[in-house]
Write a protein that binds this DNA or RNA. Structure first.
Lengths: 196, 196
DNA sequence: GCGTAAAACAAACGGTTGTTTGGTATAGGA
DNA sequence: TCCTATACCAAACAACCGTTTGTTTTACGC
């Protein structure tokens, strides 16, 4: 049984197609983005997209998967250099935010698009996101915390705050590194002023 | 100059229309919801909606405004009974979460729909949301905090974590009151175990 | 009860949606 | 150089979108 498949051609525009889709899905969401919007950015005709993907949902799934891969890579690279648990968590949050706010169109899709928006691929998307977030489960498990602190709640609070920053973040005014450090610090140390 | 307007009729279905729109906008977002989806829920024809609203965007704006009004009312009622700053903040978070997760279809719209999704009404929606969040500005201003704590970051972190809970919350498994209390506690007290 | 305005119906409108179908140019291995 | 699978084009498809227009029913103030 020999494979009849051939190598992909060098002039195919699939990469640019994915880039453009990532940018638009991230900016306008899934339902707010049109096939025609996407292909216009790469001078392609609408029908040509269906040579690469069988449906709009599968294009989204591909972008989403790439987004998870990229942000995972960034975070892992960031935490690899450190050993102190709190520094590792901080580095992970910085990488997460940088991918989410400044760089990565792909990463923005992962946060912006809800799996429920794409019923046909919802399970796949949820699985990808869960696997990424399990990175933070480990990071938080490694923290030396007071015994009564619920680590799950801590994770959900931190990730929620980070992800929501997509809503209010403005380039120039805010700095991802500063935000991430502040968030971690707010959790780590008491905010309440000492009793008099 | 006498008004030629007459009182609204008792059998008009505008309230149910708004209820249905709130439910669907909250579940599927603005672009994921169709005029026909909305009117189907109240046994109305698509065109009839345009007796009440000139455009889909204005229907969303009405639902959004009502959502802000309802959640504001709830939060204000919750904090009116308390005087301790931390208790007031906790009560506000509980009310916010209850409106967001269990009750209020209207409140869900406020959190789910991004003003950017509706360019024609974006400024109005942003204004409404900002005015609501100013409630939390005051609540956090009243907290006795260590001098080096940035109150804006604290607010953004708390509200972000609360709002994002819409993503992972599951009825029955989680409890809005418990979540809110945990979040506030995580900010208030140190999570780090004391140095040995 | 009558007149009037409120609140809807009935039926379409032009445009857009995701998608399909059949044909075509061309890069790249043989 | 020829051949084939790749990667697209060209043109349409039916379904659906938000919206408009003209008409009809009906609650309510007088």
């Amino acid at each position: 049984m020999e494979s009849t498949a051939r190598a992909p051609r060098a002039d195919n525009r699939l990469p640019q197609l994915l880039d453009c889709a990532a940018r638009l899905f991230g900016e306008r969401g899934f339902h707010g983005t049109t096939i025609r919007d996407i292909v216009r950015g790469v001078d392609m005709l609408p029908g040509s997209l269906y040579y690469h993907f069988a449906a709009k949902e599968q294009l989204l799934a591909a972008v989403y998967a790439e987004g998870v891969a990229r942000i995972t890579e960034r975070v892992q690279a960031a935490i690899a250099r450190r050993s102190d648990p709190w520094q590792r968590l901080t580095a992970a949050c910085i990488a997460h935010l940088e991918a989410l706010l400044d760089e990565g169109d792909y990463a923005q899709v992962v946060i912006r698009v809800r799996p429920g928006d794409v019923p046909e691929a919802a399970a796949q998307l949820t699985g990808l996101r869960d696997r990424y977030e399990s990175l933070f489960v480990e990071l938080i498990d490694a923290l030396p915390l007071r015994p009564n602190v619920d680590r799950r709640t801590l994770r959900l609070m931190l990730l929620g705050a980070l992800n929501w920053s997509q809503t209010w973040y403005r380039r120039g005014r805010d700095d991802p590194r500063v935000i991430a450090r502040h968030f971690v610090a707010l959790l780590r140390r008491p905010t309440e002023s000492p009793a008099e």
